[in-house]
Design a protein around this nucleic acid. Structure first.
Lengths: 229, 229
DNA sequence: TCAAAAACCTGATAATTGTCATAGTATCCC
DNA sequence: GGGATACTATGACAATTATCAGGTTTTTGA
């Protein structure tokens, strides 16, 4: 599974594409590939990172523990995304934990390679900056959703998000299967509340389920619900 | 009130400090100074910005209109902060409106000066990146607070935030006075709910008020409340 | 200055959401 | 295979928060 960054297709999706050949070579020489099993952490809140993780396969949830003991999932990161950039750039401990939602394959890139390139290649820095600008915009949207939408609306939105970003399997179920608890941690509600809403959606024919798998049956109605009828 | 960026102290607080003298000269030549009255917008959601705003005096609320017709205030920007960076960098329309909370004085810097420097001065780009990394971290914290804390906790936190970031006046009131509606838009709740909580805090001796002015009486208790006792 | 408008406040009530308890179901691991 | 463990599900109830309706006070502007 080991391979060279220069040839890695994943790179197309993230800021690393702005690196020069020489820079990529250095990154490739210093990187290590890791396999993370479902449920295991890439890193945990408060840790000091000495590099970033480039996701080659699988999905990671980025979450933060709140005072009441519940995790809030802030983002789901998939193939092509780079994790830990923020702490490396700001030279701070991470404010988030990254835990594998399913089995993952990631490349660990030591911060030195990143920092050197940040200081010497303005194109790369600008590319990272653009990505972060995008993330910040998304974060703002999440803030608004969290505070202004009902649990029902947030769950409906979460399902649409999962469909748009991770797609569906051959049987029409959402390709990324989250536990009910993870779903409740994404939308910021009690697990029981999330389960209740899911049951209700099922009764209303908006979704269908099979075990923990969830399939969208009436996307239009879900969209309407999110918009507020 | 017109002055040269090279001599502007405000600059010390934002990314502009990473600019070279030549770059600053160009910025200074192209900038215009504007006065914005309380309640007037610097820019509105969906607008295309052709520059950024450097706040010299006053405070602006950055907000987003949600589907239910209520504004959510995402951030309060004060002296030294640069607004509109994100849209200029990502070359997108703004996702937020910026409205003056009190009378403001701002410098408008056309995007060309910014973009040129971004492409040629890695130090500047890196500085902007660091700022944005910081903003993103704060946004994550807000997400967690919004979804996991009660209205009481969020209001208590808002008061502490106002004290720490804007200070108090000579009589012990918070220096930045927000309307009850603005407070409710910061914490994401109904105005009546916010008012009720404020009345309760007053009864409990946590704060005192005079008109719309609010003063913190028992900071310790407020902190405890935020932490969850 | 005075009337209109806006902002503030409170009560009553309804809707939403959380908590606790309990039971069924799936999953894991030896 | 079977028992322990985790996850899903639902009911009953309590707490939180929103909404509506009405007042009062403050601010604004002609």
């Amino acid at each position: 599974m080991e391979s060279r960054c220069e040839n890695c297709i994943i790179r197309q999706f993230n800021s690393l594409r702005a690196m020069s050949k020489d820079e990529l070579k250095k990154v490739s020489d210093s990187k290590t590939t890791k396999t993370i099993k479902k449920g295991e952490p890439l890193f945990e809140e408060g840790e000091k990172l000495n590099g970033v993780f480039c996701v080659r396969d699988g999905v990671s949830k980025l979450s933060k523990l709140s005072a009441n003991g519940k995790d809030q999932i802030v983002k789901l990161a998939t193939k092509g995304e780079v994790l830990g950039q923020r702490s490396v750039i700001a030279e701070e401990c991470t404010n988030l934990s990254a835990i594998a939602v399913n089995d993952m394959e990631v490349c660990f890139i030591p911060k030195e390679s990143i920092n050197n390139t940040l200081q010497s290649n303005p194109n790369f820095t600008l590319e990272v900056l653009r990505h972060m600008a995008h993330d910040l915009k998304e974060a703002d949207d999440v803030i608004v959703n969290m505070s202004q939408k009902t649990v029902k609306q947030r769950i409906a939105e979460a399902f649409l998000y999962l469909k748009n970003n991770f797609g569906e399997d051959s049987e029409g179920f959402l390709a990324l299967t989250l536990s009910r608890e993870d779903i409740s941690n994404v939308v910021g509600t009690a697990t029981e509340s999330a389960i209740r809403v899911i049951s209700e959606f099922k009764k209303q024919g908006l979704i269908h389920t099979s075990g923990k798998k969830i399939g969208i049956k009436n996307e239009h109605k879900l969209v309407e619900l999110v918009e507020g009828f």
